[in-house]
Structures are given as C-alpha cells and as structure tokens.
C-alpha cells in the first residue's frame, strides 16, 4: 500500500485514492448553523453564475496538505468561497477584512456576532 502520497512526483494531496490510512472514523455530528450557511452560500453563488463547483474544488486542492487536518470541512469551504468571489470580482479582499474586523467587535461568540 502507498505509504504516503508522493507529492514530489506531482501527485496532489487531495487525490488520495489508494493511500494508506487508519480505520474509518464512524462518529458523526450534526451541522452547525454557520456550516449550513456556508453550504447555502456556495449553492446560491454558483446557481447565480458567480463561480462553479470546479472553482470551489480548485481552491480547496491548492491549499497546503496540512489544511485537511488543520481545518474542518466547512472552514475550508468558506475560505474557497471567499477566494472564488474575490476572483469573480464580486467581493474584494479589503472589504472582507474590514467587515471581519467590525464583526469581531460585536461580541465573543457566533451568536453575538451574527445578526441572522
């Protein structure tokens, strides 16, 4: 069995079919509201033609291999949705950063900071 994905050969980390791995983790969790909102943002923005699932995947795949372990599924997704919207000219990085700073001033939890 392939012990590690041979990145030096051009094999990309997300392309993991056949690699060695441990037991399948069978625990599951319900999705949080913010995770469902990320999912909804992706579906709505792609339905409106701002980017495609292919663009979503490209940005996910271009993340460093460690991101798969260090970030959760929807953390990676919101990073990719944001980048795709910037590439599409819908949002700018400056306005995202500016708004994020303002949001952090609203309170310490998601419930405090999100008005929805």
């Amino acid at each position: 069995m392939t012990e590690t994905i041979p990145l030096a050969d051009g094999h990309r980390w997300h392309d993991m079919g056949g690699a060695a791995a441990g037991a399948v983790p069978l625990a599951d969790h319900d999705f949080a509201l913010w995770e469902k909102r990320v999912d909804a943002l992706m579906i709505l923005c792609s339905a409106k033609g701002h980017f495609t699932v292919d663009g979503l995947r490209r940005v996910l795949e271009d993340m460093p291999p460690s991101s798969f372990e260090e970030l959760s599924y929807y953390e990676r997704w919101i990073a990719s949705v944001s980048q795709n919207l910037v590439e599409a000219g819908v949002l700018t990085t400056f306005e995202i950063g500016e708004r994020m700073s303002a949001i952090r001033e609203r309170g310490p939890t998601y419930g405090d900071a999100s008005d929805g």
Binding site: D28, E75, R99, M100, A113
Partner: peptide, 27 residues
C-alpha cells in the same frame, strides 16, 4: 438525531465563522 451538537453559538467566535458572517452580509 442522537449526535452531539457541534460547537456553535456558545463557543468563541472563530476566524472562519467571522469570514462566513462577513461574506454573507456583504453579499
């Protein structure tokens, strides 16, 4: 459904949750 709730409203706001709020509000 019998699963633990995932950390949400009652945990410290994360960088990525902040980004979700920002992107959603701006859109």
């Amino acid at each position: 459904s019998g699963h633990p709730f995932r950390a949400d409203d009652d945990h410290p706001l994360s960088y990525w949750q902040t980004m979700e709020i920002a992107v959603r509000e701006l859109l």
